[in-house]
């Protein structure tokens, strides 16, 4: 077991609604094995993004434990979290690259978590880091755009840069929050294939939110389904039948 979620719940307190509470996750219990490629399915608002963010503690769960490689993340202080987050790469729906910076600079930033703070403060980059970033961009087939500003790239190209940045981070776990939702079908497949290749060659573990059931069935080894914050399905892609889809999507 590389990742375990024990009784994880998340309740958001709505700011403008007289303290009204909204339960995003409800007692999630889950174990993920080393090397699994897990697709997370669910309707919009089912709690998929919160679920992914609770794993690397971008969202601190209201209740429960998240245990990553025998370390309980939910009780970590800020410094411990920073160190642990380096092992967990994340890919976002809107790519979340730093606009105005080149693809190469965005990629280099992936390794910043391992460097001393003063070096990051001064923005000093070694020749070795430059070279490694170029190799990561080459790996995702975007090295010819290395010095172009990311806001001048297409959605698919930006997501490739985000994947290169994630490779630069040398993570053991990949989290994906709907990484292909804003891409066209052909590019979605290319990006999913790229994530799967990186997962396989680097022997990583992957959890990825997906809207597209077909993509999930094609690329994932295991499917979990969320509905109204609860885990309602957990099985192999072969187990996803009409009944399972009805359970997940209602």
């Amino acid at each position: 077991m590389v990742l375990t979620l024990q009784d994880v719940s998340m309740i958001y307190k709505s700011k403008g609604n007289k303290g009204k509470k909204e339960q995003a996750l409800d007692s999630i219990n889950l174990s993920i094995l080393q090397g699994e490629f897990v697709g997370v399915l669910g309707r919009s608002g089912a709690g998929k993004s919160t679920f992914i963010r609770c794993i690397n503690q971008l969202v601190r769960p209201s209740h429960g434990k998240v245990i990553w490689l025998d370390k309980e993340m939910t009780t970590m202080n800020k410094d411990q979290l920073c160190i642990t987050r380096r092992e967990i790469g994340m890919i976002f729906q809107q790519f979340n690259l730093v606009p105005r910076l080149s693809a190469h600079k965005n990629c280099v930033m992936g390794g910043f978590g391992y460097r001393p703070r003063w070096k990051n403060m001064l923005g000093l980059i070694t020749a070795e880091e430059r070279e490694r970033a170029m190799r990561a961009l080459e790996r995702v087939g975007i090295d010819h755009m290395a010095h172009k500003r990311v806001d001048q790239l297409s959605g698919g190209q930006q997501q490739r840069v985000a994947i290169a940045r994630m490779i630069m981070q040398k993570p053991k776990l990949i989290l994906g929050d709907e990484p292909v939702s804003s891409l066209d079908p052909t590019t979605s497949k290319e990006v999913m294939q790229l994530i799967r290749d990186v997962h396989d060659t680097e022997n990583m573990t992957t959890l990825i939110n997906l809207h597209n059931v077909e993509l999930a069935l094609e690329y994932c080894d295991r499917i979990i389904g969320l509905a109204e914050g609860r885990l309602v399905f957990d099985g192999s892609p072969q187990d996803v039948d009409d009944h399972a889809l009805k359970t997940i999507y209602g």
Binding site: C82, I83, R85, N96, F112, G113, Q169, L175
Partner: peptide
């Protein structure tokens, strides 16, 4: 978005 991405890479608040 970019703030969340930088945070997820293991960088502290000032970074």
């Amino acid at each position: 978005g970019p703030q969340e991405a930088v945070q997820s890479m293991g960088l502290c608040k000032s970074m």
